[in-house]
Structure formats: structure tokens, C-alpha cells
Design a binder for these strands. Sequence first.
DNA 1: GATGTCGCTTGACGAGTGTCAAATGAAAGA
DNA 2: TCTTTCATTTGACACTCGTCAAGCGACATC
Lengths: 237, 237
Amino acid sequence: MSSPTQRDACWTAVGLLDSSGRNDLVQSELTALQNAGSNESVASGETLFAQGDRVTGIACLIQGTVAIHRSHGKEHSTLLRLLDSGSMLGLDGVFGSGTHANSAVALTECSVCWIEPEALCELMAKSPAVIRKVLGRLAFDLEASDEARVNVVHLQVRARLAAMLLALRDRHGTVDESGNLVIRLPLSRRDMASAIGTRPESLSRAIRALENDRVASFHGKRVVIRDLDDLLDEIEL
Amino acid sequence: MSSPTQRDACWTAVGLLDSSGRNDLVQSELTALQNAGSNESVASGETLFAQGDRVTGIACLIQGTVAIHRSHGKEHSTLLRLLDSGSMLGLDGVFGSGTHANSAVALTECSVCWIEPEALCELMAKSPAVIRKVLGRLAFDLEASDEARVNVVHLQVRARLAAMLLALRDRHGTVDESGNLVIRLPLSRRDMASAIGTRPESLSRAIRALENDRVASFHGKRVVIRDLDDLLDEIEL
DNA sequence: GATGTCGCTTGACGAGTGTCAAATGAAAGA
DNA sequence: TCTTTCATTTGACACTCGTCAAGCGACATC
């Protein structure tokens, strides 16, 4: 499926190999891989793997954003987390039950490099740094899931929305010429609502509430925040 | 703090070493360790580590039950999960931020063996089985946290209580002479409420509701379930 | 035995949010 | 441009659940 050098480049792209290792040109390797077309390109909206699927490999996300969903019952679905470039997908399935407990859907056009689970185990056996990367990913997701769970219990919709915007800041936030924080939402309203554990209608009202209090202004998927402290105040209460 | 042989016995007790490995008498090693008194004994109610503490080691739970809490704000606290004998505590902190994101409190008298993080890393470097055990633990906790999060969003209190009873069945359930499922709750009502993301008052009402519908009968911390299917039906709806 | 404390239960009430229905808006196709 | 379709918004209403208050039982202390 991919040559050894291509695979190394893929590892590097997701941060598995130290830059001091066999490859050190992370960015160039990444673009080289993309141009070679060795890694799968996934269109926006496509499903990488579905809940209940047998785990056949780990997906290394070279570029793009992926949503991890879990469906519950017939019509209920929850967006558990977003993964951005540099992340590995499906780790929980490999080391857990062996089947995917949730689905992965591309939110943007993505480039993905698939790795066989055995290859990952081999690499872990060889390099402690790789072990730590994989463990770090799982520990981070666990921490985030715990946090989200606490938020759903203790915060109301408006505060959860604020917390989500804050979380999106890292990977999807920029600063405009006036010094305002601008966030490009990678999600539809429906998905946003699902992510904070509410309904689109309630989310819509929460958005309106934040706008009325001048905390943030929403223009489609573009959110502008003048004062970050206002957002922080929302989650305190 | 502990001799090499004692440590090996500790690893074995928490399932880190295969029985086909250096030690194979798991249970006898375990009791031997307890009798030797080399591992710390923790009284019920004691705190093993607190949220915000710097991670100094991994705690291997030889015997007992531990609750993982997260406090949020001043008076809000959530019980995230229970860990029983054979579990490792604090993994998420070691491979994550380096500080404990939540607290561990003994629910029963516990015997615990503390391990330095470096020792764990060494062992992982030596044995792939150990890596898989650690990854498995994190993957399991992540899966469980995701599940709990979905439950809080989509199920109401009554159904969440049923789901919790079902989860407690594995480690705390027995079958009496009449073939009924009996669960010894390791938690106070307050902690149970916290675990399913509600208040003691609401939990009390949910318990009463299940009793009225003959799904389960509560006698203090002893729960009797005549038909398991009735419990399962609760979470479907 | 009387008193205090603590954990749990019960009742009454209101706030937050889910649900249903309809209006509006935006994107795609004829 | 005019439909068609879908996502989002808005409004009205019902319901679960959190909150406050009081009552109850167990247990320890005086």
C-alpha cells in the first residue's frame, strides 16, 4: 500500500518520528507525500470508518479536519471530538475492543495515510518516543472527554458554547487587523449543537444570547470575539 | 521503596506481566505482597492523589475500589469513574500534562503499590505486552468516558441509573440462591448521583421509580434485580 | 435519654431546554 | 429567474430536573 520511505514520511508528518530521527524535513516530506499522491485523499463528508467496523488500520491525518461521531439509538448522534492534521485516528479501537466504537467523518477535504496496526506496534517496540506519542494522544482525548462530560453536567448551553469556542481557538482561531480573535468554525450548526450536547434550536438561542451581550458576533461560520476575557467569564459562572 | 521481586509481584497483580512470564503465581504473589506489607495500605476515604498535584508515580491498585473525581468550581464535583483491583491509576496524568487532572479517593480500604513513571517506561520498552496493557487501560477509560457523555446527553436520569447498575454488574455483582442479580453498591447516594451527572434528590426519585416498576429493589447499598432484561429495556428507551 | 450531626428522602416550585411547528434564508437545479 | 430543497432561526409550549425547604432515620456524643 505504501513504500517504506513513504511510510516514514507519514510517521514524521503526524509527529511520530523525532525530527532528529531518520527524517528531519517534516514539512517538505509532507508536501512531497501529498504531491506523490501516495496517501488517500478523502472528500469532505466522506466516512473514514464507521461505528461497528472492524479495525483494519490507523489513519494518520496529514491534512484536514475529522469529526468523531457516536450514534446512539436510531436518530441520536453525538459529536465527540474533532481531530486536526497531525492526529492519529482509531487508536481507541485498536487497543480496545478491536472494533470502532465511533465513526470518523471528514469535515474538510483530507489527506490520510493508513497504517496497519502491526506496523504501529513494531514502531512502538523500537522507539519509546513513539509510545509516548500514542499514549499522549489517548491521554489527551481522555482528558478532553472527561472535561466535556463535566461541562455538560455543570454548565448550561450558553457556557458550553463559550467553552467550545475557546477550544476551537487553538487550531481554528486567527487574529484580524484590529486585534480581534476570529474563529472559522469547521462545523455546521447541527454538528456544533451535537458537540456541546444540545439541539440546533437551543444552540441558535445561545448564539443570539452571546451576540446580544456583545460577547461574540456570528457571521455564518465566522465568529469574531473582541475581548477574550468576556468568553472566559462565561464559563466561570 | 520496594525490592525488585516485590515490584515484579506488583506488576503481576495488576496484570502487567503475563502469567507465562517471570512470575506465574498471580494470586499467591498478591497475598504474599499483602502479608509482607510492602505496599501501602490506604484507608477508606483517604486521597491517593489530588487534582492539580504533580504526578510522582503510577498507583497500581492491588485491592479495593477507588473513585476518580473532578472538582469544578467551588462546590461542584463529578465522579468520573471507578477503578477496581488490577487497575493502574494516574496514567492520564503521566502521559498528559504531568499534573493530575482529577483526584483519586479510596472508597474501600485499599492496598496500593506505587511505581515511578520511569520504571513503567522501562518496562514498556522491554515488553510489548506491557505497552498493550497500558494502552488498553487508556482506551477503555476513553471509551467509557465517551459512553457516559453520550448517556448524560441522550438519556434521562432513570435510564442513566439503569446504565450505571449494569456497569457495576461486572465487578460488584453476584447472583443469589434464587438466581437474582445482586449488586453491592460501592458508593454513597451522593457519589452515585455525581457519577450519573445528577443530584441526590433526583437520584432518589429515580430509585423510587425503578422500585415502583419492579425493575430493581434497593435496600441500602444492596440492589436486587430479578430480570436483567428489565434493566436493559430502561436504556433502550 | 436527650441532643446534634449527617445522609437520605419527600414535597413544591421554577428555570432551562427539548419538542413541535412555522417562518426565513441560502444554495442548487430547472 | 423561479422553484425546490435543506439548514437555520424563531416562537409557543411541555416536561424533566435542579433548587430550596422540611422531614426522617441512623449514629455518635453529651
